[in-house]
Amino acid sequence: MSIPTRHPFEFDPTYGMTLDALLAIVPPEVPAGFDTFWGGRYAHALTVDPKPTISESATSHPNWLVRDITYTSTDGFLIGGWLLVPRDGPVRRGLVVGHGYGGRDAPDYDIPVEETAILFPCFRGLSRSARKPISPDAAWHVLCDIDKPERYVIGGCVEDLWVAVSALAAIFPQTDGRIGYSGISFGGGIGALAIPFDTRIDRGHLIVPTFGNRPLWLTLTTIGSAASVQAYRRRHPDVLETLRFFDAATAASRIRIPMLMAVALFDPAVAPPCQFSVANALPKSNYNEIFILDAGHFDYPEAEAQHAALMAKVGQFFRTP
């Protein structure tokens, strides 16, 4: 391992924690009503007809048919994104891919999967799903309706993921029950919240996930979205009561499908203790794996090699059965 020792930050992005200390972190206590809150939202999301619309994309790729896609999520919110379909071979599986808080400008063409249709939705308020009054700026997006648990934008983004699964299954019925999810950072946190309640998702891959261990998340210095919520909390100290229902570590303790987690020892945007809180919350089983990165949201010498090793595992993890 080669954890960065030189960086421009005025704080330590390792938070002084060793790997052993990170692996010993336990998730926070589950708030009463947590499962009912999310189970009800999931049941409602299942009633939504996504009405996916597919059109030719301005971009092309030698291995993929690239399509623009829109679908209707909860609250009638129109979600935009991309759909990749393999040029050769059948479609046997589906994969929904979530993005970080920077949004998404294009699909990822290097995901090493075969016989798989890949849907890249842009979560509400961001990139192709930008719409007022939601700000596309992460620092403001994360605060949208934070004082209203039923309306908080993070919950809407979780519903966007569930409806993305519905849209993919509607386009390719043969993938129903064989749809995976992969998400990084913001998309990792959204995935942790969504996966436990969606029985149609059969495996998940989360990379440096945010929103884990909210009590801790609110205390650790960061350049990520937590910073704006920490500032908000100074004026509204009761916000933690809402955030406890949007805790990725709490939700991860409910996951019962195979998971491949990638968590970092150094990360200025998503504090490693919060990432490891999500990973540590997963049930201990032979089909869950934790992949350790030297750093997240930061360039480092071994980044390319570690990314290649992780992608090899991803290809194996999502291999068509």
Score class of each variant (00 low, 15 high):
Ala164Tyr: 08
Val165Asn: 15
Val165Met: 11
Ala167Asp: 14
Ala169Gly: 09
Ala170Asn: 14
Ala170Trp: 12
Ile171Thr: 14
Pro173Arg: 08
Pro173Trp: 15
Gln174Asp: 13
Thr175Ser: 07
Thr175Asn: 10
Thr175Lys: 09
Thr175His: 13
Asp176Glu: 15
Asp176Asn: 10
Gly177Lys: 10
Gly177Leu: 09
Gly177Ala: 08
Arg178Gly: 09
Arg178Lys: 15
Arg178Val: 01
Ile179Asp: 12
Gly180Gln: 10
Tyr181Cys: 07
Tyr181His: 08
Ser182Leu: 15
Gly183Met: 12
Ser185Gln: 05
Gly187Met: 02
Gly188Tyr: 01
Gly188Val: 02
Gly189Lys: 02
Ile190Phe: 07
Ile190Arg: 05
Gly191Val: 09
Ala192Tyr: 12
Ala194Asp: 11
Ile195Thr: 14
Pro196Trp: 04
Phe197Glu: 14
Asp198Met: 07
Thr199Glu: 15
Ile201Met: 12
Asp202Val: 13
Gly204Met: 09
Leu206Thr: 06
Ile207Gly: 05
Val208Arg: 03
Val208Gly: 06
Val208His: 07
Pro209Glu: 08
Thr210Cys: 12
Thr210Ile: 10
Thr210Pro: 05
Thr210Asp: 09
Asn213Glu: 04
Pro215Asp: 09
Pro215Ile: 01
Leu218Asp: 03
Thr219Glu: 02
Thr221Gly: 07
Thr222Asp: 06
Gly224Glu: 02
Ser225Asp: 08
Ser225Leu: 10
Ala226Leu: 02
Ala227Asn: 12
Ala227Ser: 14
Ala227His: 05
Ala227Ile: 04
Ala227Thr: 04
Ser228Asn: 12
Gln230Met: 11
Ala231Gln: 15
Ala231Gly: 11
Ala231His: 14
Tyr232Ala: 08
Tyr232Ser: 02
Arg233Glu: 10
Arg233Ile: 04
Arg234His: 11
Arg235Ile: 14
Pro237Ala: 11
Pro237Cys: 14
Asp238Cys: 10
Val239His: 05
Leu240Lys: 03
Leu240Val: 05
Leu240Thr: 12
Thr242Val: 11
Thr242Leu: 03
Leu243Trp: 03
Arg244His: 01
Asp247Trp: 00
Asp247Tyr: 00
Ser253Glu: 00
Ser253Ala: 07
Arg254Ser: 01
Ile255Ser: 00
Arg256Pro: 00
Ile257Lys: 00
